[in-house]
Design a protein around this nucleic acid. Structure first.
Lengths: 339, 339
DNA sequence: TTGTACGCGTTATCAA
DNA sequence: TTGATAACGCGTACAA
């Protein structure tokens, strides 16, 4: 049997209320008594039972994070920021990895109601409006990171401006035929990474007076394989692009693989622009549009703490910017395709 | 106020014991009663409170994993295997990341006693013997992965054989002056990754009749930076090695960076062998000794489930093997250093 | 400053 | 088949 607060009280010869006060550093305990209780605690090697504690306190000391594909480089970087803040603040972290829509909906339906965590960070998935009442009713402090809902404080990057700047950079290098590999557009349309990046592409093209050619856009899964397949289709076009902009670094690296397989030299024969700024992009010298991933996680946690301390805080939307990292996968096109 | 089991009982016009029975699919409930109770549950949107539940049940539905530097590629791969099993089994996962000795000891001291999880997986750190009584006393089912203690079921890779085979491969390629970059040797000596890899190196060298030259061994941190610095020292030797074997892939990649900075061509001027088989090694064409990381996590979880179901199961030691992955960072030395 | 009684939501036990 | 009641371990209000 585990030792309880009663055992401590008995050994110290005090009431259990006193033990509780000592445990919580209440000033209303005589010093001599405190000493005695602490000695008993040490002697019995007593630790308050966390679940019994959360029972009465209503707090669990745990923060939950819902994150899709948590082993993807992007997720990992965000998670790194989250974990650092969490452990610094003395909370424990429970991770809900989701790999499909069923898991996602399951999380959103059940988590809010189950006082299992003191706060929730949702990364990269925007909850359907259907579930918002759950959150509101459950009073579970929640922050969205790389996701958005008007009724929940959200941290997002400006994907439109980011992809606009990425395209503009390619245009300034002289490219006129630019392939665009996007990720799947799914779910929430109020904030959708893929959709926003597409809008940025359109804007840059429009400003440059270039028509958006549908054949130059390919949609693939957000991973390496998606990039590989999409780039194959693009580069097998009769009139292939001189540059490819991929909506994620892993897709860009898949493109790099395709280029290698096709004996295309990068950036001489093909320029490649990524999006995310994962560590791998650094190793492979990929020019990319960097997202502040670690900071997003950190900031999300900071906002979550605020929300926990002040649940009445109205929702806000925080936009972070991306930053171009010039490396060596982009050059000027060999043959200018002037119109 | 959240709805409780009492509310359901009142609405259904039954005692709360009956509601509990319905919740637990006890057969001892008349069908008509069951219907009525279920209707009440739906109407109230009632969910049993998990913490109140674990209070009496003694189970939490949560598994804990202690893992150092969880964002390192090796840890991530193991974690991937763990997470997959965990969620498949319907458990939740709480991650304790540790970045220093204090955090490690803290975890080992406190976690066992706090019924916060139904089981514990410890990755890459062997608990000091001091803490073993804690585990035994707490009856918390525990499995060690990439770590070892005689009184706890452990899953390890055969580091000695792995590094022996890696060295042997280099020797067979004709290398005679081989630099060895090891990680820090710390903590537990009954199972220590760095120490075991060193032993394997010694054995291979011994069999080949080559003296182990201390100047050819460098110790660095387990990361990129550690590999970079160690390889600099090695390659600045009067008589530099023709090949370098690093005890981890990231150290090997740090070595690759050094080589690049020194305008050394790999593998023409320098051969490099890694250890781990992380995804990055595939991208960078690193020849390496592959560990079954994902499988280690998966297997650890399977063993943990067995341990939970049968706490009396005696500890066992499971050894997994590594596998050489030939890629393109190893060739034969330009100038044979025959003795 | 200390001790006591009660409540938290659930399950197990026992009596009906 | 059902209902009432006692734990589970802790915190808190309140009484002493």
């Amino acid at each position: 049997m585990a030792t309880t607060i009663y055992d401590v009280a008995k050994l110290a010869g005090v009431g259990l209320g006193t033990v509780s006060r000592v445990l919580n550093n209440s000033p209303a305990v005589r010093d001599s008594t405190r000493q005695r209780v602490q000695a008993a605690i040490r002697q019995l090697d007593y630790t308050p039972d966390p679940i019994a504690r959360s029972m009465t306190r209503g707090r669990t000391g745990t923060l939950a994070v819902i994150i899709p594909f948590f082993t993807r480089p992007f997720s990992i970087e965000v998670l790194r920021g989250i974990e650092a803040s969490t452990s610094r603040l003395g909370f424990e972290l429970v991770v809900y990895n989701i790999e499909n829509d069923a898991q996602r909906d399951d999380c959103f339906r059940r988590l809010p109601m189950s006082r299992k965590a003191d706060g929730l960070l949702v990364v990269s998935v925007s909850p359907k409006d259907v579930f918002i009442p759950n959150f509101a009713q459950a009073q579970l402090p929640t922050i969205l990171v790389d996701a958005y809902n008007p009724s929940i404080t959200s941290v997002v990057v400006n994907n439109v401006d980011g992809s606009y700047a990425a395209m503009k950079y390619l245009l300034e290098k002289g490219h006129r035929r630019i392939g665009f590999i996007n990720g799947q557009i799914e779910g929430n349309f109020k904030f959708n990474q893929a959709n926003d990046r597409l809008i940025g592409v359109h804007r840059a093209l429009g400003e440059a007076g270039i028509n958006f050619e549908p054949e130059l856009m390919e949609i693939g899964s957000w991973d390496r394989q998606g990039g590989r397949l999409a780039s194959q289709r693009l580069l097998n076009l009769k009139n292939p692009p001189t540059a490819i902009f991929a909506a994620s670094d892993v897709q860009a690296l898949g493109t790099l693989e395709t280029a290698k397989a096709m004996k295309l030299s990068v950036p001489r024969d093909l320029s490649i622009m990524g999006f995310d700024g994962i560590e791998l992009s650094e190793w492979l010298e990929l020019t990319t549009m960097q997202q502040p991933m670690y900071h997003m996680g950190e900031l999300g946690m900071a906002l979550l703490m605020e929300q926990i301390e002040n649940p009445q805080k109205p929702p806000e939307l925080i936009r972070l910017n991306t930053e171009l990292v010039e490396r060596s996968t982009i050059g000027s096109p060999k043959i200018r395709n002037e119109q």
